[in-house]
Design a protein around this nucleic acid. Structure first.
Lengths: 159, 159
DNA sequence: TTCCAGAGTATTGTATACAATTAAATTGCT
DNA sequence: AGCAATTTAATTGTATACAATACTCTGGAA
């Protein structure tokens, strides 16, 4: 075994991102509490407000979530009156997610609320852009690398 | 209702971070598969390798997780032979998490594996530092703002 | 010493995530 | 048309997260 450096939690980029993600989640969940939306429910609504109706699959592509997560989430949104789930007539495999009238009516209220949150965050557009660009780079690396042999072979087989 | 701008998913910093966090999670989970560790289990082990034994509370402080998450996670780590959970004799309320011999023995293997992952990511230490500094700023803002009235009052009460 | 407020952990209930499997519908191929 | 391969959602099982609650223990006040 070659000499190995210690791995410290506080130096891990992954933990910084994991931790920030949880804080964002908590922040938006609190801010959206008056609407009764969780963070994942909120991002689903964002996509639908952009372009409804969508199939479960299309929504999953945008959110990077599969039906195992979305099906129960959408059932909860339906129960709370935000969306309707309708089997497509032209392709019975698909389920189309439509906005309800309530969802359409409340869109601008939510948009405004989110705008207030972004103001509270106190970051300039430039800062946000910079950070998002860096994150895109990291995510691309992670995508590229996820098919690497490192994660497909046993550790013992490595040099 | 004042004029409101649309909120687009692809412009949301929170979604970039949420998405990156999931990709990191997936990446490490794959890389650590030979050890049978999930990502949260791995970060728990990182902290314990730095400074075991720790109480559940101390571990939770480092990881920003509560006993509701940690108790079952630690039971799984115990079942897999990484840690032992022992009631403190001096204070029966506390449970001390100790490393097993196996955990101590495998530490450098895991460290090495993580080192390889970081190399694969292809980021310089400078780039990583920059990004982590920015993330700290965002997290501080989120902490400061989480007690704001925005998230403690009903939306109707807002100006 | 007895009682009680607070600390530490576990438990319960709800909501994600995601791999793996199932089931139904559609497409493509012959 | 007939049928295998594919597509799409839903389901199942495991593992986080976290709020709220329960329970036990500890230390201090009366």
């Amino acid at each position: 075994m070659p000499k190995v450096s210690p791995v410290l939690l506080d130096e891990q980029l992954c933990f910084s991102i994991y931790s920030a993600s949880k804080k964002f989640n908590h922040f938006y969940q609190g801010a959206l509490a008056p609407f009764g939306l969780t963070y994942p429910q909120y991002i689903a609504m964002l996509v639908l407000w952009e372009d409804a109706p969508l199939t479960v699959h299309q929504l999953g592509d945008r959110l990077e979530l599969d039906s195992g997560t979305l099906t129960p989430l959408l059932k909860r949104l339906e129960k709370q009156g935000w969306v309707t789930r309708v089997r497509s007539r032209t392709d019975e495999r698909q389920v189309l997610i439509h906005l309800t009238e309530m969802a359409t009516a409340k869109r601008d209220e939510v948009y405004q609320r989110i705008g207030q949150c972004q103001t509270l965050l106190g970051m300039s557009n430039k800062e946000i852009d910079t950070m998002m660009t860096e994150l895109v780079t990291v995510k691309e690396q992670l995508d590229n690398v996820s098919n690497n042999r490192l994660i497909t072979k046993k550790v013992d087989d490595l040099d």
